[in-house]
Design a protein around this nucleic acid. Structure first.
Lengths: 338, 338
DNA sequence: CCTTCAAATGTTAGCGCTAACAGTACCGCG
DNA sequence: CGCGGTACTGTTAGCGCTAACATTTGAAGG
């Protein structure tokens, strides 16, 4: 008996369990995977051995033998942006419930090459399927060049993405928030948009623009930020300096915070002199000064549906190409009565 | 020749490459992994074949053959809290640079059993090592019961965690921000703490308390929130109703936002009548009303060091048990001159 | 009582890779 | 000229699992 407390003998395999239960390794496999018929009594004996030995199937061996993997890859943007991060958790949540693992490969800057690299990275790890959280136009282009040997779906991509896409209906949310603002009697609504190379920016901008056009309201030139509070602040200062807006729809809550800050510094009251709305409903939004009207997206639901879509795809199905989740308009003080 | 454009013949393996290069599969393996001597000309031939066939090593097979995996697992809390999410990206970033994959297993509620389950989930996936992002006391307890057959390190855990831990020095940050507040001439500093079962709350509270005691300042009873803006708001209302604080140190920026909101509603000027500081330096903090004094934590650095620590551990080293990263005090208007 | 077939179990052959050892060629040196 | 190396390459045997087929068992049907 070894004197050191190593007890380092390998994890038990099918063989050990089989020996203890007095059956062949194949029977154990059948019990563990619940495939093929096994007598109840035998099953019990095997299960007991599994329990006692603390047997744990080796996923590498299984993947090698079957050629498929129960791990799926997620390409995510390396950012703390509320949406993408929430989506990631949503997917992981759904995947875990179904016994799938999730490995991530993040992209620090949304360039085409880096998306391709991230996908490649995951393929090397032999994942069974890939989800690309791709709110960026570059992602769509990159995906176009990826060999189709791994099932793939995208979240938040546009039409250009050559795989099934699931996303929150940005267009609808933007349209509704703009109409809400118009319904309060403003002649028009200004817009602080997100970066031009983000699909979500484009969709939100389109929703805003079409809502205005439908009402016959003039369409002021949109200002553009980069999602950050700082860029929202800059946009807010420009708005204050150059014009005198009655209502502003900001493409996300973080920038809206910056806009509110700029207005506060300029002594402009919200909603007294100008009404402001955002997009995302980050947890902080209800505590901005003033609390922010915004559009809520159900990312958990997006994650769940994304996972289902991918599994369907992995099993050979051919789900439709575009799936939309409806957002909710959340009205708060920033568009409240004066 | 098949008429359908499937072209679905399996990915090439070592064997195919070997055949094309006219060598044995073993030589290919040596070239690919750069292990063992290979004549320059042979190597070139192999590399050419690799290139042409688009050969990609199969990680499942490698894992099976070697018994070690170049994927590491991260147990993360399923939340959008700024710190944990940033840490996750930091780790993934460092891991990817070194050719490691990262799989995540999230924990929806920080209970002991769920941490254990998440770790188990990762072990089943045969990861080479595990990082537990464990700012919660329950995590420490859970970790204590996990068999030590997988190298493991923790981020942000306390002394109770039985594995190497790396974290930002919460105590130091809290102490410094409290001293900053005291140095402005306030008799004492109130504190809105985080949940009692989070280690970071406890450390921040301790830093605050000891800073006060060292100055001989009275120690008011801390209020307690749950990190959310709403709980900060509630705490702020209580502060307004029950007492008349000159200075408040709030345990994170989100709650600080709520506190600011409560003060704003009560017509209390910041920093005019009360000074407020937070912790984390979320991107929004500079655009709060007023911009928030806070403590910045370098999560990317934490991630990098965590990864290094884990690798060292996986290679059999026995790194020291506690590693601290120093935070930075960021002074903004919320503790500015009156 | 023997056939017949399904249920239950076992046997064999890889999945693609690496570890370990076994050559083979060619060099320098006694 | 032959010995011991060193540089290079090849052969074999698994890693732990599942797919596919082979075999045994048992109970029903004739």
């Amino acid at each position: 008996m070894p004197i050191d407390g190593s007890s380092a003998k390998r994890q038990p395999g099918l063989a050990e369990v089989a020996a203890m239960a007095g059956v062949s390794h194949m029977t154990v496999s059948r019990v563990v995977n619940d495939t093929g018929p096994v007598r109840a009594e035998t099953r019990a004996r095997v299960l007991a051995a599994v329990e006692q030995l603390g047997y744990r199937p080796n996923s590498a061996a299984r993947t090698l033998a079957t050629g498929r993997s129960s791990v799926l890859g997620v390409v995510a943007l390396e950012s703390n942006l509320y949406g993408p991060a929430s989506t990631l958790y949503g997917i992981e949540h759904a995947a875990r419930e179904e016994g799938y693992g999730v490995t991530i490969s993040s992209v620090s800057r949304p360039r085409r090459s880096s998306f391709a690299e991230a996908v490649d990275n995951l393929r090397r790890q032999a994942v069974g399927g890939i989800v690309v959280i791709a709110p960026h136009v570059a992602a769509g282009e990159a995906l176009r060049q990826v060999p189709a040997d791994v099932p793939m779906v995208a979240v938040g991509g546009g039409e250009s993405v050559p795989v099934p896409v699931i996303s929150v209906d940005q267009y609808d949310g933007a349209r509704r928030v703009t109409e809400h603002l118009l319904s309060l009697g403003h002649e028009t609504v200004w817009h602080v948009a997100g970066p031009e190379d983000w699909l979500e920016s484009l969709e939100r901008e389109r929703g805003w623009r079409e809502a205005l056009e439908r009402r016959g309201a003039p369409v002021p030139p949109p200002l553009r930020g980069d999602w950050s509070p700082r860029s929202g602040y800059d946009a807010g200062r420009r708005l204050v300096a150059e014009t005198r807006p009655d209502a502003v729809f900001v493409a996300n809550d973080q920038m809206a915070l910056g806009v509110l800050r700029a207005f506060a510094e300029a002594g402009i009251a919200v909603p007294g002199q100008v009404r402001v709305a955002g997009f995302d409903d980050v947890p902080e939004a209800a505590y901005f000064s003033p609390p922010l009207t915004t559009v809520r997206q159900d990312f958990i639901e997006v994650g769940r549906r994304t996972f289902r879509l991918l599994v369907e795809r992995m099993e050979g199905g051919d789900p439709g190409i575009r799936h939309l989740v409806a957002p909710d308009l959340i009205v708060r003080d920033s568009t409240g009565p004066r």
